[in-house]
Each structure stands twice: as C-alpha cells, then as structure tokens.
C-alpha cells in the first residue's frame, strides 16, 4: 500500500514539475514550425521574384509590340528594331522534339528492363552509371558533341538520309557542317536519358510486387504482366517523367548551343541549323546592350521560355489528374 502511494506521489510530482517544461517544449515547437514555414516559402518567393523581374524588364518592348506580334514575328534584326521570336521558338521546339523522340523509347525500354527483368547485379551496375551520366557537366556534353556527334552527323547521318530527303523534306540536307538540330537533339537525348530513367524507375518501383505476382500467378509471362498490369498502372507516372525530361530539354543551354549551329532561321529539316531560345539569351546577353530594346527583347525571350515550360507543366498536371481520377 505504501509503495503504491509513493508511486502516485512520484507521478504527480513529475507531472507538476513537467508543467513549465511542457510549455517550453510547445513554444520551441511553434518556433520551429514557423521558421520552417518561412524557409519553405522561399522557393515560391524566388519563382515569383524571377517572374516579376522578367516581366518588368520585358515591359518596355511589350509596350511597343504585342506579345502575339513578338512570338509570331519571323525577322530578327535588332538594329532595325525587329524582334521576331518565331525562329527561336520553332528551333527550341525542333531540338526538344528530336531529343524526346530519340530518348523516350530508349528510356522506357531501359527502365522496363532494369525494373522488371534485370537481376540485382545489373541494377547495381547500371544505376550508378546513370547517376554518373546525370552528373557530367553540360559543357562537357557540348565538347563531346562537337568532337563526336557533329562529325558523325556530317559524315554518316547526312549521306545516309540523303535519298530520303527528296520524299520527306525533314531529311533534306542543305547544311554540310553537321552543326544541326539532329546534333543538338542527340546530345540532349543523351543528357536527359538518365534523368527520365531514374524518375520512371522510381515510378515502376511504386507498383506493388503483389500486383505483379497476382498476374504472374495466373501463368502469364513477364511481358504480359508488364503490358496488362504494370504499364497501365504506371503510365501516368511514366508520362510525367517524360514531361519532366521535356522541360529539362527545353531549358538546356550550354551543350545545345555548342552543336546546334545558332543560325537565325526557321528550320525545315533535322539537318538545318537552329537557334534555340536559351542559346539566344546566353550568347547575346551583356553584349550590344546599347541597341534600344535589345535587353528588353532578350528578357522577353526568357519570359517566353518560362511560359513554354509552364504550359508544358500545366498540361502534364491536367493529364496526370485525369489519369489519377479516372480509375484504371
């Protein structure tokens, strides 16, 4: 009996003594909560700040020309005050599209192999190599592009596709240098491959093993299981990984500008040179700034790039939402 009493006393003592400690703990918790909230909101503020800065710097030219006029204008002659972004927008689109067309099949097949077929040793070998590829600096890809890809395009791809050029204009070659959309697309494809694969791989890893086994238990092959079970469940996530790769390709600057030729023209063939938006900004910002409106025009270019990526992301979110809400 006496022991029970002592216990009770101890408990109530501890309880009483804890009162200020608890208050202190709660206060600390509140401080941590608020400071984390403040820090987490920084990225949103940064994004807003960048957008506003671009907007204000682009504002002068938008006073003179309408946005539509700028993005549909085909002539880029800053000295004459003509700032048509259409060639750059189309160039960006071409390079990104070529990169995606080359990269996506390779990425999806590699991811399926790694996730569904490969043994532990292959995963252990390939994953670090992909991480390594992702870590190579962009300028190194650019140098590699100049040394390897551009000559390859010039010496092999152009002659190979020459006969097709008469039937399909996109293979027509009027540019003998090799510095072309195809070279840019190839370099970009290699650059975004590890990125897409690692996201798509994570997506496939979220498919429960039990779901695969449910299908395999019925005597299906691995491929049938992939086709009817794994891919339908993960298609949204795989699509998202491709869109993210796309956004990356759109914004990639250094490696592309080194191999793509940088000629202001509307390309018609994968062997034509192009001048993507990021290359335009990187090559010209800080130079010839005395030309009226030039600075404002380049900022408009940056704004257009941001809007393109934004549209892509909104589009992907809408599709993802559709896939997620609509059950399989």
């Amino acid at each position: 009996m006496s022991k029970v009493l002592t216990n009770n006393q101890t408990i109530s003592n501890v309880h009483r003594n804890n009162q200020p400690i608890t208050q202190k703990r709660n206060r600390l918790d509140k401080i941590v909560h608020n400071s984390l909230l403040a820090i987490s909101s920084l990225p949103i503020l940064f994004a807003l700040a960048i957008f506003l800065a671009l907007w204000f710097r682009a504002y002068p030219i938008l006073q003179v020309h309408s946005f539509i006029e700028l993005i549909s204008g085909t002539v880029w002659k800053p000295l004459k005050g003509l700032f048509g972004f259409y060639p750059f927008i189309v160039g960006t689109g071409w390079v990104t599209l070529v990169a995606i067309i080359i990269a996506v099949p390779i990425c999806i097949l590699t991811t399926l192999y790694l996730s569904e077929y490969a043994g532990v040793w292959a995963q252990r070998l390939v994953k670090p190599i992909l991480d390594l590829l992702a870590a190579i600096p962009s300028v190194v890809y650019g140098v590699w592009g100049i040394l390897v890809i551009v000559p390859m395009v010039k010496n092999y791809a152009v002659p190979l596709f020459q006969p097709l050029g008469n039937v399909f204009p996109i293979f027509m070659s009027k540019n003998p240098t090799g510095y072309s959309i195809l070279a840019g697309g190839l370099v970009l494809a290699v650059m975004i491959t590890p990125f897409i694969i690692s996201i798509a791989y994570e997506v496939l890893q979220t498919v429960p093993a039990g779901l695969r086994q449910a299908s395999l238990a019925l005597g299906t092959t691995r491929w049938q299981t992939i086709k009817y079970v794994v891919l339908p469940v993960s298609s949204g996530g795989i699509f998202a990984s491709v869109v993210l790769g796309c956004s990356r390709a759109l914004g990639e600057t250094m490696a592309v500008l080194m191999v793509v030729g940088n000629m202001v023209q509307i390309p018609h063939s994968i062997f034509d040179s192009a001048y993507p938006l990021p290359a335009l900004i990187a090559n010209n910002y800080g130079e010839m700034m005395s030309i009226p409106m030039y600075d404002s025009a380049l900022m408009t270019g940056a704004l257009i790039l941001m809007v393109m990526i934004l549209i892509l992301n909104i589009f992907s979110v809408l599709i993802l939402r559709h896939i997620l809400i609509e059950p399989h």
């Binding site: 086994q213 238990a217 019925l218 005597g219």
Partner: peptide, 20 residues
C-alpha cells in the same frame, strides 16, 4: 514456368485486383 503457375493458382494474403 507459366504452365506450372497456371496449374497451381495462388490466393495471396492480401487481394490484389488487377487494374481493370
């Protein structure tokens, strides 16, 4: 192996309906 698994059906601990 597919013939083996066709012959011996498995009812798992937790049901996994296929996504259809």
């Amino acid at each position: 192996i597919t013939e083996i698994r066709k012959k011996a059906g498995l009812l798992a601990q937790r049901p996994y309906p296929l996504p259809m």
